[in-house]
């Protein structure tokens, strides 16, 4: 069960969106988030929604798969909505005891909710349609100009790569330890929060021990394979921007311009 866990919720495919250079996708996602905060009327949100819908259709990632990512944030969504609708001052349109709903409140609450939903879906498209490893590669290359100023861009990318590699291993290890403890009578399922938290301590200790052993072994294996940091290192997958990447970039620029002009006009 634990072996086929999906990481970074990647949805395998070979659509145009999947094939785009990860750097283009990362920048486009960042721009999309900025655009969502520039926009403040329905037409603007409609444009953003339409662009996102187009990306989803081209990527061929099923809608049900995308919606699954929304579930964990439903609570936050609801909470910000309630907060905005009741807290914003202005022209009161409904009140009940100390609770007032204002016209401005409704507007802000609805916009914020739309913004959050588009933001979550938009950024999850990045991780859904990009292999985790290409994502780390993309981040490394985008940050590499900062390396000149001592920013550890290679190290950060290597850390993410190793984390991706070992999360399943550690999950398996956790599973094994918990089963071993359960076989000896440990109980992780009943009792209050404190009792359950306490029951986890005997799991965490051996887990840390094995994490440190893995780290030690891996460091030695990496050294044996001539790893000495990012300097002088080449990569098998060269990242070269292709025609489609430039087109995607141009489209993104047009989209940004439209959003800015639209926000100015209304």
């Amino acid at each position: 069960m634990i072996r086929d866990i999906t990481l970074g919720q990647y949805y395998p495919g070979d659509s145009l969106i999947h094939k785009l250079d990860p750097r283009v996708k990362i920048i486009a996602t960042l721009l999309f988030i900025i655009e969502l905060f520039i926009v403040d009327n329905f037409i603007g949100f409609a444009i953003c929604g339409a662009v996102l819908a187009a990306v989803i259709i081209v990527s061929k990632v099923p809608l049900s798969f995308i919606m699954r990512g929304l579930k964990p944030i439903l609570f936050i969504l609801f909470f910000t909505f309630a907060l905005n609708i009741f807290m914003v001052k202005g022209e009161v349109i409904w009140s009940w005891g100390i609770l007032h709903i204002t016209k401005e409140g409704v507007r802000i609450a609805v916009f914020m909710a739309i913004r959050l939903v588009l933001l979550i879906i938009g950024s999850s498209m990045l991780t859904l349609a990009t292999k985790p490893l290409s994502l780390t590669d993309g981040i490394e290359r985008l940050l590499s100009p900062l390396a000149r100023f001592g920013f550890p861009s290679h190290e950060i990318a290597m850390m993410m790569t190793i984390a991706l590699r070992f999360i399943p291993t550690l999950l398996e290890e956790t599973d094994k330890i918990m089963k071993a403890q359960q076989a000896r009578g440990a109980d992780f399922e009943t009792g209050g929060l404190m009792k359950r938290a306490k029951a986890l301590i005997p799991v965490l200790v051996p887990l840390f021990v094995s994490a440190f052993r893995i780290a030690q072994d891996l460091a030695m294996a990496m050294e044996a394979r001539c790893y000495r940091g990012g300097d002088g290192r080449t990569r098998m997958h060269e990242m070269k921007l292709k025609k489609r990447d430039f087109i995607a970039f141009a489209l993104e620029a047009i989209f940004l311009a439209i959003v800015i002009i639209e926000a100015r006009m209304f």
């Binding site: 985790p132 490893l133 590699r165 893995i214 294996a221 990496m222």
Partner: peptide, 13 residues
Amino acid sequence: MVFQNPDNQLVSS
């Protein structure tokens, strides 16, 4: 060099 534990010497996913 090839080490004993196959899990702890692979770097990439």
